[in-house]
Design a protein around this nucleic acid. Structure first.
Lengths: 205, 205, 205, 205
DNA sequence: GATGAATGAGTTTTCATTCAT
DNA sequence: TATGAATGAAAACTCATTCAT
């Protein structure tokens, strides 16, 4: 039992240090971008020795991956829940946009990291990150397919349209960030949904 | 006249070397991403000495900028012409998508560079790249505004919708690349236009 | 206590490496002049890796500064003590010369470094070295002023004469070095003092 | 005859280009110090091609030597004339100081170069520069010896005192430069001579 | 497990010099 | 003779990683 307790305490402590390292990495990434992320600085920011980083992570790559995971985990979790429940597909897409925009309003700085992520996404070294993104596209595509089956949406290549939709959201987010997060989120989210639902065209009487 | 000829030949030669360096840089960027772009490799790839790079460019930054410029110049030029002529706004947007998709079908590898570009775009150091992108968003926004004035489009925040539109195109492009450039360009371009024009919603009788 | 010991040993070790680097730099400077001082060579001479230099010093500049400091510290300390005590101003100047000459008899090779120092002194980038020299001139000037107040010296512009005096010492030192440190120090030191005290002129009966 | 004329014209032209290069080097040295003297800049400043420098000079070293020669030539010539004429030794020394100070009042910027020169003076690579300085010390020493013979000066080691005297002048010059060339030249020159002639000591009645 | 001193390969950049024209 | 494009050796500096304690 004493052993159990000890082990448990050890685990908790380890998790604590690990998280500290990730937090440090997030902070640096957010503040200084990918160029600012050096092992030296992560160690300093995390308040541990450089060598300690290698106790918890195999190398820099792993820290980066774990950092990105940790950063986007909240968003992904939220969006997943949202896409998985049993509401109408169009409602899901609307909420998707809203949720997306809100996340970046709060974690706007992370967007640079996201772009970094995107870059790595297409690098041969990082299939993992890519797969995370693909899973995501697939999930949105499923919603579109569901909408198609329900006779709600026109026939479409769901994967492609899903990618369009996600990127359109990103475009809006980038614009908001560029403008200094202007306007209220609900309105901009509605703008996205409106266009995807009804198009730009002025309907004749 | 002899002097003129000499000067001309010199200029041609100079442009040739310069272009050779840029081509080398594009090749490396395309093949190995931003991490693969070292001055050593550019020199080797271009078949010149390292020092020669500094004869034609002030530093690495300049090579990168020139490389990106050279890469996207054709696309930007084509899109500019397209957005500037006097056809109907909706036609312009349709052609924009088509042109966009076609470009990346042909220069698909460049997309990784684009993402790199994007990352730098939001870095504090590179207002230049940013401004190029912004100019672009503005141009699309102008088309949207024109459409609005003509009663063709619903009222909208043109900058934000322009950003959405551009990014939606990119999403489609990325998806095409991921799928191995599947399907014909016209159809996918139409898909984008259709959604932006008419929305996803199945129209009731 | 164990911790204390460890820390102490670490500090000693650190100081040891640092001093090793400085010694290497002094050696190189002495042997090959400023041109011979490359980071590569310092590292090799010190028996450490190039990277290690940057652990102990921010850049080459810092190594140079620290090297000069370390080299002249003994002289400056000795001269300071000498100028600060409460003997008669003329005695102080005499001892100043003696001390000066002795130092360079022992560290003759350093003179080249001194000249290097001088060059940098007047460079816009190195106010520090300059200020060290200026402080020195000021101190000698203070002695001259004190001599003036005591009615010992004729009225004079103390800063200028101080500079003259210091440089005259340097001239003597350079000449000694050129001649292979000929003659005894005391005599040459007295020569300086004699001239500054009594002048060159043969006194008429 | 035609050949002679041609040759002559060629010589004149060559001398012209050569001088242009030296002027460029002096300008750069004066403006940016030794670090600013690159072959590229010399060529640009002189308005010739880089290759041309190597037509007129064997290498950078030679340009430097020639530049320093050209810079100090006026001073050396003036001082030489002064030391060689047949006035009284003490008059010569007084004029020496005055001339020295005046030269640096007018060419103050050159002082940095002088110091650079001094550094090289003690480098094994440049016996030439050293010898120029030595010749100079010797000349002043001759004046001192002459003064000795005339019963004007006390017995002394003339080379050492000559070095002291020259350096004392430099000290005054540096101080003047540091103060922004304060005070009139005559007075400061007299200060030097007074001290060397009469010493600092207040003469008792 | 934690440390942090040490490493050294790798990177950018400089610049004197050469040589074909 | 004059050119200037090209060179490449050498320099400063970075930083992920290792390893003895």
């Amino acid at each position: 039992m004493g052993v159990d307790k000890k082990q448990e305490r050890k685990k908790v402590l380890e998790a604590f240090t690990r998280q500290g390292i990730l937090d440090a990495a997030i902070g640096l990434l957010t503040r200084d971008g990918i160029q600012g992320l050096t092992m030296d600085r992560v160690a300093m920011e995390a308040g541990v020795a450089k060598g300690t980083l290698y106790v918890y992570f195999k190398n820099k790559e792993e820290i980066l991956d774990a950092t990105l995971d940790a950063s986007f985990d909240p968003l992904i979790r939220e969006l997943s829940v949202l896409l998985d429940d049993d509401r109408a597909p169009d409602r899901k897409l609307a909420d998707f946009s809203l949720c997306h925009l809100r996340f970046f309003d709060e974690h706007g700085d992370l967007i640079r990291v996201l772009f970094f992520d995107r870059e790595r996404m297409h690098s041969e070294k990082n299939h993992y990150t890519d797969s995370r993104y693909r899973t995501f596209v697939k999930r949105v595509a499923d919603v579109l397919d569901e909408g198609g089956r329900q006779g709600l949406f026109v026939p479409l290549d769901s994967m492609k349209v899903a990618a369009m939709f996600i990127e359109a959201n990103m475009g809006m987010i980038m614009q908001r960030i560029h403008d200094g997060i202007s306007g209220d989120v609900e309105k901009d989210a509605r703008q996205i949904t409106d266009i995807f639902m009804e198009g730009l065209r002025q309907k004749k009487k």
